[in-house]
Design a protein around this nucleic acid. Structure first.
Lengths: 361, 361
DNA sequence: TTGAAAGCGCTAACAG
DNA sequence: CTGTTAGCGCTTTCAA
């Protein structure tokens, strides 16, 4: 109502294709006109600049005009002018995977804490989509980047870094994790040590014929977890049977299919280490269907400690990555760079992990 | 390297607080200078405007300069100029809830299809956070809005609608769902009918003493699912025992706690309808702990068909909302409005649902 | 076939 | 205490 009147001549704009007319957003100029001041003043009361000097009367007049017009500052204009968007991007393979869902939630909460919005990208672990996600940072849409990628290396990140866009990644999954001098801040999850701990737990339970449902080939998690598996066996003097190392998709279906294959092998393994909980749960289901008792006939260990791990039957022994905390941690590192609080070389924070023994082993 | 040189005088800018110097992003002006043309021409080759007229030679020179400088158009400038951001916002209570995780994934995929990026907001079902999410749309950061809110009504959406920002919501959860003339497009999930179907299934199994773990008070899902529950009982001539209607949080903990309460009631219910799968899973765990067999002693039905529902033991009978499809559907509606392909009155699409009978009932 | 210039809405240096 | 002015990087009319 008052908004309509105050917009003055030409205050409305034709809706596209003849729908209801749409109001033009009021601008600072509109507010200034309504309050009888210059646009500058409006900007100043908006931003609280010139704290001492402005007269109380003017400020109130402006505030009132803003209220009447329903003025809301145009972020796109602020973004251009201030050269920042107060938005960060989070890149993950798949938000539906509870591990990344929790991770994103941590990112989200921490980002809000610092006043940042969050743009999310699912890459499904495909390089082209991962690159596309970097593109949004290159085009100035976001101020920084967190997340994890499977197929990017330092040269992919370089253009961003050169332009001063800070990047903080979930490490231990990055291809360039082995570089001497990391280029981006990372929270590193020591996948190999964690995997090793899990497999050693299996060995401690008396197993020697231990299979691994290793995940998708050519991905960092796969690589690191398999490495941990091999080291655990080697450390205890157990020979690796390559036939016990099985590829599979990182989800229930993958675990289910691969487990069926494993059940046909002779002799059967007495324990299996699944590269993530989704795989482990799929394996659990395969066993149940085939009448194989867990853990009596076969022990199954998982990885990630997603919420469902505690809920399946038998409850899954797994390794916790504290994923929500990782997301928060990452944003904290990023925020320090965005604020300029920290400007030093790349940092690596080693994330902890816990072996969580439940019923499946 | 070439980028450095080509930026020419003043091409670098001091990093904040003395870190490595950071390159200024090349602009169209930089490209124009390098190619010996005007900025206008650069813009034209970038956007393919003036398709016929430009000389091949010029175009190539410009393209080459772009490549050398590593030019990427500044989205914030485009946003301001074009008055659109190619970004939409998705508002959900909690992305960690698999129902919304899947929903978001659907939104994400469909949005990318149409060239839109996605800004996500978790509200935890709190009105203030829901309003904050609307704020980003008001400030011009996004071109449209999808998602679901618990505590907003038509008056909250009005300012956005007035400004021509299209909104498409997951209905059946909205407070103004009962309005004669809905103001926003909705994909409506008929919670009440679906809940009714579930409860009737329980009755068909011979149960008459049926409890409901109803979820959080004063939320639309709670309201609608409880209504379906009441109607099912009424329809079969079963009196409602108000003591069998229990509040709980929409998660496993809530289901667990409420179920323990229910197990203490005398006489015990022989079946319980949980307002979502997370609640149902919590209830399952409570039963297992107390040695109550499901479904023999108590049958449990859920709602949502999250992936874990098929994986718990016993596998959960539930009702599927086809949630990923809902997200896609919503974005499709939104995209039509953004493109101007559709400009008519608000549409409501009734979403289907399926009763999925597994082992828990 | 190309270029000059206006302006999207805002911030901030500077002048009065 | 308030206003003038110059852009941020881009698109798009209009003129040459």
């Amino acid at each position: 109502m008052s908004e309509d009147a105050a917009n003055g001549a030409g205050g409305t704009v034709a809706g596209r294709n003849g729908s209801d007319p749409v109001l033009r957003r009021p601008t600072q100029a509109d507010v200034a006109r309504a309050a009888g001041v210059s646009q500058t003043v409006v900007s100043h009361v908006l931003n609280g600049t010139q704290p001492k000097s402005m007269s109380q009367a003017t400020r109130e007049r402006v505030l009132e005009a803003m209220g009447e017009l329903g003025y809301v500052p145009d972020q796109t204009a602020q973004n251009l002018r201030l050269r920042r968007t107060m938005t960060i991007a989070a890149v993950v393979p798949d938000i539906v995977n509870p591990f990344y869902g929790l991770f994103i939630r941590g990112v989200q909460d921490e980002a809000r804490q610092h006043g940042y919005d969050l743009l999310t990208y699912n890459t499904d672990g495909h390089r082209d989509l991962e690159l596309k996600a970097l593109g949004v940072a290159l085009s100035g849409r976001v101020d920084g980047l967190v997340g994890t990628t499977f197929h990017l290396d330092e040269t992919d990140f370089a253009p961003l870094l050169r332009r001063g866009v800070p990047i903080c990644m979930l490490g231990g999954q990055m291809s360039f994790d082995d570089l001497d001098e990391p280029l981006v801040d990372t929270v590193s999850v020591p996948d190999d040590s964690a995997a090793r701990m899990m497999v050693e737990h299996l060995i401690d339970r008396g197993h020697t014929r231990i299979a691994i449902l290793a995940g998708e080939p050519d991905t960092p998690p796969r690589y690191n977890r398999e490495r941990g598996y091999r080291r655990a066996l080697a450390g205890r003097g157990i020979a690796v049977d390559e036939d016990l190392i099985r590829d599979c998709d990182f989800n229930e279906r993958g675990g289910y299919d691969a487990m069926l294959g494993l059940l046909r092998s002779d002799p059967r393994p007495t324990a299996v280490f699944a590269a993530n909980d989704l795989i482990a749960i799929g394996a659990l289901i395969a066993c149940r269907e085939r009448g194989v008792r867990v853990p009596d006939d076969i022990a199954i260990g998982g990885f990630d400690d997603i919420p469902a791990a505690a809920l399946v039957y038998p409850a899954l022994t797994t390794v916790s990555q504290r994923n929500q905390a990782i997301g928060q941690q990452l944003v904290r590192l990023l925020a320090e760079r965005l604020r300029g609080t920290y400007t030093g070389p790349a940092r690596t924070i080693e994330n902890g992990f816990d072996l969580i023994v439940r019923e499946s082993t």
